[in-house]
Computed example of a mutant assay.
Amino acid sequence: MTDEYANEHEHDLEAEYLSASDATVLDIYYRDTSPTIDVVVPCPSCSDPLRVSARVDEVVETDMELPIDDSEGVYD
């Protein structure tokens, strides 16, 4: 892959190519009236870091203990 392609192509994201272990939370804040979470993930095509903003649409309780020390249990 050339540097020109890596810098000029569209960074299409598909959930099937991303995993929780690839993401790093950068910021959590309010935009308008909704919480928003910014994460950085690698582009599946060129591995460039991409900053992604996700608006929280729903909040539900979960059956997990905090702090989350062992992330393997999440994927079982």
Rank of each mutant, 00 (worst) to 15 (best):
Y5Q: 14
Y5C: 08
Y5H: 13
A6D: 11
A6L: 10
N7D: 15
E8L: 11
H9C: 06
H9N: 09
H9A: 06
E10N: 12
E10D: 15
H11E: 07
D12V: 15
D12G: 07
L13F: 02
L13G: 04
L13I: 09
E14A: 11
E14W: 06
E14H: 13
A15L: 13
E16T: 11
E16W: 04
Y17L: 09
Y17F: 13
Y17A: 10
Y17V: 04
L18Y: 01
S19Y: 10
S19N: 14
S19F: 08
A20N: 12
A20L: 14
S21K: 13
D22N: 12
D22A: 10
D22V: 02
A23H: 00
A23T: 00
A23Q: 01
A23L: 03
T24I: 11
L26H: 09
L26Y: 04
L26M: 13
D27C: 02
D27N: 14
D27H: 10
I28T: 14
I28N: 13
Y29A: 05
Y29I: 00
Y30V: 10
D32R: 09
D32G: 05
D32L: 07
D32M: 05
D32Y: 10
D32V: 03
S34T: 11
S34V: 05
P35V: 00
P35R: 13
T36S: 08
T36V: 09
I37W: 02
I37G: 00
D38Y: 01
D38A: 08
D38G: 01
D38K: 11
V39M: 09
V39K: 01
V41M: 03
V41R: 03
P42Q: 03
P42R: 04
P42M: 02
C43L: 05
C43E: 01
P44L: 04
P44M: 05
P44R: 06
S45W: 03
C46W: 01
D48N: 13
D48C: 07
D48T: 10
D48K: 13
P49L: 04
L50F: 04
L50N: 07
R51F: 00
V52I: 13
S53M: 08
S53C: 06
R55P: 00
R55G: 01
